[in-house]
Design a protein around this nucleic acid. Sequence first.
DNA 1: GCAAAAGTGTTCATCATACACCCATGT
DNA 2: ACATGGGTGTATGATGAACACTTTTGC
Lengths: 231, 231
Amino acid sequence: MHEYAYPRPALTVDIVVMTVIDTDLKILLIKRGAEPFMNTWALPGGFVQVSDGKDQGEDLQAAAHRELSEETGLPKGRLFLEQLYAFGQTGRDPRGRVVTVAYYALVPSDLVPMVCAGSDADDAKWWSVANELPDLRLAFDHGAIVDRSLSRIRGKVDDSDIAFELVPPSFTIAELREVHEAVKGTAYDPGNFRRRFMRMQRDGVIEVAPGKRTTASKPAKVYRFAGRSRV
Amino acid sequence: MHEYAYPRPALTVDIVVMTVIDTDLKILLIKRGAEPFMNTWALPGGFVQVSDGKDQGEDLQAAAHRELSEETGLPKGRLFLEQLYAFGQTGRDPRGRVVTVAYYALVPSDLVPMVCAGSDADDAKWWSVANELPDLRLAFDHGAIVDRSLSRIRGKVDDSDIAFELVPPSFTIAELREVHEAVKGTAYDPGNFRRRFMRMQRDGVIEVAPGKRTTASKPAKVYRFAGRSRV
DNA sequence: GCAAAAGTGTTCATCATACACCCATGT
DNA sequence: ACATGGGTGTATGATGAACACTTTTGC
C-alpha cells in the first residue's frame, strides 16, 4: 500500500497507432478483456510505472514505448512516437480519476505484419479510419483522442516529414503520394506532387535509392529519405 | 491519508504566461517561497485538485485557470490558455515523481496592470525573453518548458490567430506588427505586413473599429478582430 | 520645414493548382 | 495494340520578400 497526504490521480499512457495499408489510413485497436468497457475496442495503453523510491519509475515516452511493444508486438526502435495531448477530464474513467498522456505512433507499412505476432488474433485489429471508425464507439474518451490524433497528422503531413514514417525505407513517388492521400482523405494531382517531390530531392531531403519498382505500367524509380528537412 | 495499491505520481499544472510590453516579449515568473528551489524563479502553477470521491476533482484546464488567477491575479475569462505539453521525466522534482501538464497563456497588453494587484510586488515579475531570460536559471525543468512554449508560439504566430490574443480589443496595424516582431524576434517589413493585414480584412478576419490612434506621426486607423480565420 | 510613421506601388521569385500531353511497359 | 500510370510542359494566380516612394501628421 502506498499512502499520500493528498489524493493523487492514476497516470496512464495511451497510443494511437496509425499506418497506411492499401491506400487506406488505419488505426490499431485492442479489445478490452476486463471491466470497465469489457469487450469494447480501445487504444493500446496502460499505467505508467511509478516508484516512491529514489528512481521514481519510468519516463512517459518510455512507458508509451513499453506499452506499445507489450500490447502490439511492434519493435521499440524504428517507430515514430510523439506526444499528442494530456487528457484529464473528470469522469473519463468510472473507476476514479485517471489522467492519460496520449501519444501517436506511425508504423511504416513494411512493419505491419509484425503486429501481434505473439498475441491473440481476435483482440487486436486494424480499423479503417474512413470506413469503419465512424460507426465504432470506443472505450473511455478514446474517440476524442483518436480525433485529435487525426487532426494532428493531417495538419502536419504537408508541412513536416511525418509521411516518411509511414512508408518503407525505400519507396516510389506514387507510394508517398498515396500515403498523403490516405492521411488527408483527398486526391493529390500526380504531376504537382511529383514536382514538390523533386524540390525535396533538390534540397537533399530525399535521394535516389538503388533498384526500381515494377508497377502496373512503366517501372518507377525508388527513393529513400535522406534527412530531416526542418529540425 | 489516501491509500493506493500502486504508487502514483503527483500531478501539477504549470503555466507559461506571456505578453508583449513595449515591443518586448515577456514571461511572468514567480519567486518560490519554499523548498525545493527556494528563492528561485519558477513558473506559476501548482497541484491539480484530485478527489477519491465521486466528483474526482477539477479538470486540468480548470486547474490551470485557477492557479493562474490565484498566483497572478489575472481574470479567469478573456485569457487565451492552451495546453502545451506534459512533462514527466523522472528526477525533475527531487521530492518524488511529479508529472506536470504545462499550459501557456497569452495576456493582452491592456490586462498587464492587473497582474499581482493583490500580491507581493517582490515575488512576481515580468522577464524579457530576449534580454533577461538567457542568463536566468529557473527551478525544476521550467527552462525547458519555457523553451517549448516559445517554439510553439513562434511556430503559430504567422499561421494562426494567436497574435490577436496579445493586443487590446482594438489595435492599429503597427501594434499588431510589433507583437509579431516581439514574438519572432525579427523585423517585418511594414509595407508587406500591411498588405497581409489588408488580406485579413478582405477575408473578414478583422474589421475597422471606431476611432483613430494618435501616434508619433500621422494618426493610424484602428481595427478589431472579427472572428477565427481557421476553425 | 522636417522627421517620423502611415500608406502605396512595383518588381521578382516561388509555389499551388489545374490540366494537357508524351512515353515506356506489361498484358 | 492499348490501357495504365510514370513522367513532362505550361499557364495562371496567390503570396512573400525587397525596396522605393508619396502623404499626412506633430513638433
